[in-house]
Amino acid sequence: MSKKETFEAEAMIHVDSLYRTALRMTKNEGDAEDLVQETLMKAYRFWDKFEEGSNCRAWLFKIMTNIFINNYRAKSRAPQVVDLQDVDDDFLFGQLSALGPSDNPEQHFFAKVFDDDVKGAIEELPEDFRLVVVLSFLEGFSYQEIADIAGLQIGTVKSRLHRGRKLLQKALWDYAVKNGFIKETAR
C-alpha cells in the first residue's frame, strides 16, 4: 500500500472523533474544521515517523491538542481560576436525593436535559478541565493516555477530571433549575 493508502486506512478513520473533540474545544464549526485539517496535514507530514502498531488515535489527538494549545486556545495566558469551594463532591447527587425517593428525581433529571444542553455545559467548562473531560467521557481515553496526549502528570489528569465532573454537575443542575425541570429544595 502507498503512504496515502495506509494513512487513509489508519488515520483518516479517526476524523469523526477528532472533529467531535475539536467542536467542543473550539466551540465553532469553522475553527473545528481548520483544527482537524491542520492536525491531519501535520500527521501526514510525519507519517513516516509514526511507529506502526502504536496507538494512532492517541497520536492524532496529541498532535491536535498541541495545535489547539498553540494556535486556538483563549489568548489570555492567565491561569484559570475556578472557585469550587462551596460545591460538595456529591452536590448533584445530594440535590437530587433531597427531592425524595418517590418521584425518581435522577431519572427525571436525566430525561429532561437535552443533548445540546450537555454539549453547552461542556463548552462552558474552563479549557483545562474541558480537555480532560472530553478526552475521558467522550473519547474514552484512559488516564495514562490523557496524560500523554495533554502532556500532564497523571495526578493532574485525575484532579482535573474530578473538578471537571463537579463543575459539569453544578452547571447542569443550575440549568435544570433555571428551566424549571426541577424545583430546588433546601438541602
Binding site: V15, R24, Q37, L40, L138
Partner: peptide, 27 residues
C-alpha cells in the same frame, strides 16, 4: 449513571464526510 448520561448526550456529532474529502484533496 451520570457518566453514561453525559456520553450519550454529548457523543453525537455531525458526520465529517466533507471534511475528510477536503483533507484528502489537500494531501
Amino acid at each position: 449513571m451520570f457518566k453514561t448520561f453525559v456520553c450519550d448526550k454529548a457523543s453525537s456529532s455531525p458526520k465529517a464526510d466533507d471534511l475528510k474529502k477536503r483533507i484528502l484533496t489537500r494531501i
